[in-house]
Design a protein around this nucleic acid. Structure first.
Length: 630
DNA sequence: TTAGGGTTAG
């Protein structure tokens, strides 16, 4: 290995302003400075730089570049500023290369003002100067600025290269931007670059176009682990966990080793599908990265979303380092699983730690209040969030409060709060109010809220269903029929109820009206037997299924065979008696299934966990963790 | 001799 000093070149002084020093002395000063820079001795190099400046001397650009690298590795912002001042001392203009290095230093120090000052002052700029700027804006998520710079760069006659494209792709806000850049990339023959490819895959996936991402991926001849991570992560983020897990298998077959980023996406995929067994298997492979913060955060989330709170708590407690995401994940996880009081206690612990809560943390806290009907706590946290944490209430915070107030029977207060919102209420906000109207049976307000939702999100089948159920509850059959006609006319179809259960690391799906499961006959038989046994201990099947139809289970199908009941029967048939039965649903659980599961947990002496899109129900010994409040 | 891609919470 070459020693650092071997890099040191002897050179003549670049510029001499004062001639009181002999040429030999100047050379000695410069050589000493160069030696210290290459040895990365920052304090001594800074002193030597002072001497240079007092004698009007400048070293060569490569030496300063070394010194700046040293500042970067020590995050020495003050020293970086001194170097910059020295380089521009007395109107001296550093070489373009060196200005690029300086700009990059300020980017890494996150000092955008200085970045711009230097960039604006440059007499000439090359592709690297422009790309450094574009990358800086992309990283700060100032996407529009980054795209504007690309346009200015093109106007300046500078052609983008692979570095520019891989930076600017991250700044694309819409598909049209990506497609335009993609054309440029193909035209310039740059699509084979692995950085450009992974950036393209990533941006297509993040914009919800996994098909395009896969096309770019499949065209690849040679790739690396990061391209695999981009495509796996892309599918995991787009609720296509099944594809993500399939790609992960392909990645392993192709001989690539899964590292932190891969495993984090794999965990996210398991989280999306609530695949506890597979997630636990991934956990075993993660042990060697047990200090990795992001992976641990993903693990806590996976266990929470799979309803395995003991495991989530264990990982959380063993973590040596926790950040705001760790705390927020655990707080929301506890709240979603029905442990609201514990979630609020954890928030108090967080406050005594060094980590500051953020917007999402407070969403979790208010979520905990809303799911347990903790009205006073909710108001306290909502009213104090700005004063205590400097966080302005956003849609999600208002949404939790509207849900809390509405379900507590204070619909007037909920409407008042909705009207006071600083941001415009969206379809989700109005849907929250509609949900509260359903619980309270307030038809007039429900009609108003539904109208608002439909205006903002006309394709949402759930809204029509909730409204139709509210009418049915009041025996307004004409109105029910009108809704059905309206849906038919608009071609809106309700999403069929679907439940998934993992058995031997395989996912089994049960969909209303779908007979394709190979064991469906046995499953139905088992379910009917269970229904009869439950009737024996007091279960009264709801016959008026229209009244029970909550957000979309098909009215035409009998409640008897709602998808979660089929999945439960299958779980009882196939899983060992000590195993928890974990079911994931696409729609919210209905009242009849809720009673059914409570009784089944008692009769069969089993723990049953059902995860719906909003929250999880832990059934045990005839009770549910939600306290029948959902 | 400077510039580029992938991972976590609502």
């Amino acid at each position: 290995m070459k020693s650092v000093t071997s890099k040191i070149k002897l050179f003549r002084p670049v510029l001499t302003l004062r001639c009181s020093y002999s040429s030999t002395d100047q050379t000695l000063l410069l050589n000493e400075f160069t030696r210290l820079c290459y040895q990365r001795d920052l304090p001594k190099a800074m002193k030597a730089m002072d001497s240079l400046q007092s004698h009007g001397l400048w070293a060569d650009s490569a030496t300063y570049s070394e010194l700046i690298k040293c500042c970067l590795s020590h995050r020495a912002v003050h020293e970086g500023n001194l170097i910059c001042r020295h380089l521009y001392f007395n109107g001296h203009q550093p070489m373009m290369f060196l200005v690029n290095v300086l700009i990059n230093m300020y980017v890494k120090f996150n000092l955008l003002y200085d970045v711009h000052q230097l960039f604006d002052q440059m007499p000439q700029r090359n592709v690297i100067s422009w790309t450094t700027m574009i990358s800086a804006y992309s990283k700060c998520k100032l996407h529009q600025k980054a795209l504007e710079l690309l346009v200015l760069m093109l106007r300046d006659g500078v052609r983008p290269n692979v570095y520019t494209y891989s930076s600017v792709l991250r700044a694309c806000n819409g598909l049209s931007d990506v497609r335009m850049l993609h054309c440029g990339i193909i035209k310039e023959g740059l699509e084979s670059d692995v950085y450009v490819r992974s950036a393209l895959i990533d941006v297509f996936a993040k914009l919800g176009e996994p098909g395009d991402a896969l096309s770019v991926f499949d065209e690849m001849v040679t790739g690396d682990a990061i391209v695999w991570n981009s495509i796996i992560g892309g599918f995991a983020q787009n609720s296509r966990s099944d594809v993500a897990l399939e790609l992960f298998k392909r990645m392993k077959r192709a001989g690539f080793i899964a590292e932190q980023a891969t495993l984090t996406s794999v965990l996210r995929a398991c989280t999306g599908l609530a695949l506890l067994e597979l997630g636990m298997q991934a956990h075993v492979h993660i042990v060697k990265y047990d200090q990795d913060l992001i992976l641990n955060n993903a693990l806590v989330d996976m266990y929470c979303k799979c309803g395995s709170l003991d495991d989530a708590r264990r990982v959380f407690n063993q973590m040596k380092e926790r950040d705001v995401i760790t705390w927020s994940t655990m707080i929301s996880g506890l709240a979603q699983n029905g442990y609201s009081q514990e979630a609020l206690k954890l928030f108090e612990c967080m406050k005594s730690s060094a980590t500051k809560p953020n917007y999402i943390t407070i969403v979790g806290v208010l979520f905990a209040c809303s799911h347990a009907g903790l009205l006073e706590d909710g108001w306290y946290y909502f009213r104090s969030m700005k004063k205590l944490y400097g966080i302005n209430p956003g849609r999600e915070h208002y949404g939790c409060m509207i849900d809390l107030l509405g379900k507590a029977g204070k619909l007037d207060d909920a409407v008042k709060l909705l009207n006071e919102m600083e941001c415009e209420p969206d379809a989700v906000t109005w849907r929250t109010l509609l949900g509260a109207c359903r619980v309270q049976g307030n038809m007039v307000l429900a009609e108003y809220a539904a109208k608002k939702v439909i205006a903002l999100d006309p394709e949402d089948a759930g809204t029509y269903t909730v409204l139709s159920n509210i009418y049915a509850n009041s025996q307004k059959w004409n109105s029910v029929e009108k809704i059905r006609t309206r849906m038919r006319d608009r071609g809106i179809k309700k999403e069929p109820g679907c439940s998934w259960i993992e058995v031997n690391k395989q996912i089994h799906a049960f969909i209303i009206g779908d007979e394709s499961h190979p064991q469906i006959v046995e499953v139905r038989k088992k379910l009917n037997q269970l229904i009869h046994r439950l009737i024996g201990i007091g279960y009264v099947p709801e016959t008026n299924f229209v009244l029970q139809d909550l957000e979309g289970e098909q009215m035409e199908d009998s409640l008897r065979h709602h998808s979660e009941k089929l999945a439960l029967a299958f779980g009882l048939m196939t899983l060992p008696s000590e195993k928890v039965i974990r079911i994931r649903k696409n729609l919210r659980i209905c009242g009849d299934c809720h009673v059914f599961c409570k009784l089944a947990s008692k009769l069969e002496n089993r723990s049953i966990v059902i995860r719906d899109p909003i929250r999880y129900h832990h059934f045990q010994d005839g009770k549910c963790s939600c306290g029948d409040y959902w």
